Simulated scan of single mutants.
Amino acid sequence: MLIEPSSILYAYAITRDFGFAPNPFHGFCTLATCKPDIRNTAKVGDWILGVGGANLKNAKKKCILLMKVTEKMSFDDYWDDHRFSIKKPARNGSRVQVLGDNIYHKDRNGEWIQEDSHHSNPDGSFNITNLYRDTKANQVLISDHFYYFGDKAIEIDLGSIGYNRIRNYKKISLDKSEPAKKIIEEIDIKFHSDKNIIISDPCQFSDFYKRVDQGTGELY
């Protein structure tokens, strides 16, 4: 079933689109960092609509991502799952490897480890601001039913779902919103042959080597 009973659409602003959060590579789209409120409350069967924020001028107010949550797991389970080992970051690897989002797991004492990644400090040490924000929700959202448009983001009718101001996120009941259901259904029909592939590169893919501090928004 495409749209499950009692499911929710979470529409949110993608402030930065490197290919890290969301991470659309290797046949799964994952949201493993940022947006802790969405990661905490979204359930399997819900939908995530990622809309270009003001900083992404060519994708502003356009759909970068539409994904159905098909799995949800803790950071430790994500780290240990052999399917997602390929999403562990390698800062000396390819662009896709550099942007791996499988970065959090706990040590023997139950303390968080943050792997050298897009969310670390320039020297690879822990960025405590990012670690704190990301681990506020010990949940990873996973999809094997997604459409990732990247820098070829598509126009959608955001006004019809009341998401005109692209800030934070909006939670929409799919039982009660025909316009929200229509957006999902139309994308699923029109782009069905492009499901689970990267239709175009992330908007900021050329800056793959940069890191970010979520507290200041600074890239380095």
Rank of each mutant, 00 (worst) to 15 (best):
K181E: 11
L141K: 12
P22V: 04
G217T: 11
R133H: 10
T129N: 15
N23C: 07
M73N: 04
F75A: 09
G53Y: 04
G19C: 01
D81E: 07
I161Q: 07
Q204N: 09
L49D: 02
W79R: 06
F208D: 01
D46W: 00
G50M: 09
S125C: 03
K43Q: 13
I187M: 12
N121P: 02
N40S: 12
Y104R: 04
I199C: 03
T129S: 11
S160T: 14
K176A: 11
R167Y: 07
Y10F: 14
P36K: 10
N92D: 14
I113Q: 13
H145M: 04
E71P: 05
S177M: 04
V212K: 04
E185N: 09
I156S: 08
I187C: 05
L65M: 13
S200A: 12
D207I: 00
Y148K: 11
M67D: 07
L174Y: 01
L56Y: 00
L131C: 06
L131A: 05
E155C: 10
P89Q: 01
N127W: 03
N23Y: 09
Y169G: 00
D37H: 13
P24D: 02
K182T: 14
I183W: 12
I199W: 14
A32S: 14
K72V: 00
S143V: 08
P22Q: 11
K210N: 05
S85W: 11
A42F: 00
I64E: 05
N164E: 15
W47L: 03
N40L: 09
N23M: 02
N23G: 04
T70F: 06
S160R: 15
F149H: 06
P179L: 06
A32Q: 03
I187L: 12
L49G: 03
